[in-house]
Design a protein around this nucleic acid. Structure first.
Length: 530
RNA sequence: GGUCCCGUGCCCGAGUGGCUAGGGAGCGGUCUGCAAAACCGUCUACGCCGGUUCGAUUCCGGCCGGGACCUCCA
């Protein structure tokens, strides 16, 4: 197989050739834990979780995902809350891990923190200083004996290489400069490697006095420590292209005389959080704001109650994790996604279909034992149309992780499973099968679905549990009591038993008003949130 | 202002120089005490104007519209 990945560095799809055969080193920029994570964060880590799940099929992957637990925003927030910065960072790091676990995002192999890598960071800065890529300036804190700030000297590096990742030129940068220049820097493009501490700020001793690392240096130091000077893939959100990743490259490659830091740079697109649905809303009511994370969002005035949610936990209070994960993977990772209530609800319906089909299959297999027979591919292939969803799925993933296409393969599987369970495969194949043959096919189907689920992270858990959770969330969101639903279901059951169909229909109508849809099945009465 | 990206059917969303993914919603059908689910069918699209080509939604140019980055940001 040939794995192709779009690299932001070359702006084209590159063949993945591991530095060490069979092994892959992957570094993804983690969060700065100063608040709860939002759906934008969810996208990054769901995307790279899926990437890692896929790559692990053929490679021994070392996945590194850091926590930036020493950072200006943390210090500021900690001061506001009267909390120790590291304690606050740890608190939100744990919250992040909880959110990720809910979304079936696995732990990274290494989750390094800035606070525990200070020696490596200081050594890194010193090495750059030794090579003339860094210079110190007197601290601007105005405190006597405050030490130095250390900056990276961008001009000493090849300008084209410096900006290669960003796709810009030095002229573009200077022409577009919108930031007041710090007079102490040699060049406006120079960036901080080490920042002197103000009194009372969290700080570490260093050759430049008490201070803390600049924003970019930690990833250079930590990726090197855990993956080596050069590694295979470096990922993160598109917003990190410049300056963060640009500066990481500058630091790492200048320290190591031009050795390539990461061979492939992956960047995922944004999530644009919208109000529930601004279509049909008077344009004057739509307003663009910037939230506390700097996220630009459109909100509809006066409709906050309709659901202007941003954090992962707010979303998961109303929708299933699989719906969110489905939504986030339904668009190719490099394209932007609009996030709205309407779209999560659509994803919820898709997740529901997936699990209901899985449940039907499981029940069928409980009642029917398989016997030898033809495979899914032979039964469902038609002239000019090969039915080989696993092959299609692999092809999609190999082509720059095309998850929308992967879902298409999954949908093909759902369709044939439902045909088989209904005993209607003849409609598609012109061939009638015995139950035992169907059971054989559905056994094969189950294994195929497990393979897809293990990569996409949807359809892994037991279907019954998912559907229970989905119903519970639906009731909660609508403010409907489970007891009331239970009472009406009992009422309808009694009426049906008495063949009092008008009364049964009245109960159905009452349930319908609550948003509950009732379904009679051979297994008994089931219900869903419409 | 500079750089870059995008514009697909009611909606979301893949993709391709000719063979027209997939999903959600709507409608019709099969099934069902009623209904739902499921399956089948249907709505058959590629912003506009030129150019290249036997042929363009797909390549090139222009225009219109939307977005991102240049500053903290996943």
């Amino acid at each position: 197989m040939v794995q192709r990945i779009f690299s932001s560095m070359t702006r084209q799809k590159e063949e993945l050739v591991p530095l060490r055969p069979g092994k892959l080193g992957l570094y993804v920029c983690g969060v700065t834990p100063y608040d709860y994570s939002h759906v934008g964060h969810a996208r990054v880590y769901v995307v790279f979780d899926t990437v890692v799940r896929w790559l692990r099929r053929d490679h021994q992957v070392t996945y590194v995902r850091n926590f930036t637990d020493v950072e200006d925003k943390i210090i500021k927030r900690a001061r506001e809350q009267g909390e120790e910065p590291l304690a606050l960072a740890e608190r939100f790091a744990q919250a992040y891990l909880e959110d990720m676990a809910a979304l079936a995002v696995g732990r990274a192999d290494v989750e390094p923190r800035v606070s525990t890598h200070m020696a490596e960071i200081i050594e890194f800065v010193r090495a750059l200083e030794d090579k003339g890529f860094a210079y110190r300036v007197q601290s601007a804190t105005g405190v006597e004996g405050a030490g130095f700030d250390v900056y990276f000297r961008v001009r000493k590096m090849d300008g084209a290489r410096y900006l290669q990742l960003s796709g810009r030129t030095l002229e573009d940068m200077r022409a577009g400069a919108r930031v007041a220049v710090d007079e102490r820097k040699d060049d406006p493009l120079d960036f901080a490697l080490w920042k002197s501490a103000k009194p009372g700020e969290i700080a570490w001793d260093s050759p430049w006095g008490r201070g803390r690392p600049g924003w970019h240096i930690e990833c250079s130091a930590m990726s090197e420590k855990h993956l080596g000077v050069s590694f295979d893939i470096h990922g993160g959100g598109k917003d990190l292209l410049f300056p963060h990743h640009t500066n990481e490259i500058a630091q790492s490659e200048c320290r190591h005389d031009g050795a390539v830091m990461a061979r492939i740079w992956m960047h995922n697109g944004f999530v644009n959080v919208e109000a529930s649905d601004t279509s049909g809303v008077d344009a004057d009511l739509v307003e663009e704001i910037t939230d506390q994370q700097g996220q630009r969002i459109k909100v509809v005035k006066m409709s906050k109650s309709l659901g202007n949610f941003f954090t992962i936990r707010e979303v998961l209070a109303r929708y299933t994790p699989e719906a969110l994960r489905t939504l986030l993977l339904s668009t190719h990772y490099r394209s932007p996604i609009a996030f709205s209530e309407r779209l999560v609800e659509e994803a919820e319906r898709r997740a529901q279909r997936l699990h209901e089909t899985r449940r039907r299959v499981r029940r069928y297999l409980e009642k029917n034992a398989p016997e030898e027979g033809p495979s899914l591919e032979t039964v469902f292939s038609r002239p000019g149309e090969h039915f080989r969803p696993l092959h299609d799925f692999a092809e999609a993933m190999e082509d720059d992780f095309n998850t929308p296409k992967a879902f298409a393969a999954q949908n093909e599987l759902l369709k044939v499973a439902n045909l088989l369970v209904d005993g209607r495969e003849q409609e598609l194949t012109g061939q009638k099968l015995k139950p035992a043959q169907r059971a054989r096919l559905l056994t094969e189907w189950t294994r195929a679905m497990e393979q897809l689920g293990a990569v996409l992270g949807v359809g892994e858990r037991d279907a019954e549990g998912f559907l229970d959770e989905q119903r519970a969330l639906g009731l909660k969101t609508r403010g409907v009591s489970a007891d009331e639903v239970r009472r009406l279901l009992d009422e309808r059951k009694a009426a049906k038993a008495a063949k009092d169909f008008p009364r049964a229909d009245a109960a159905r109508a009452a349930l319908g008003k609550l948003g509950v849809e009732v379904r009679d099945t051979p297994e008994g009465v089931e219900w869903n949130i419409a």
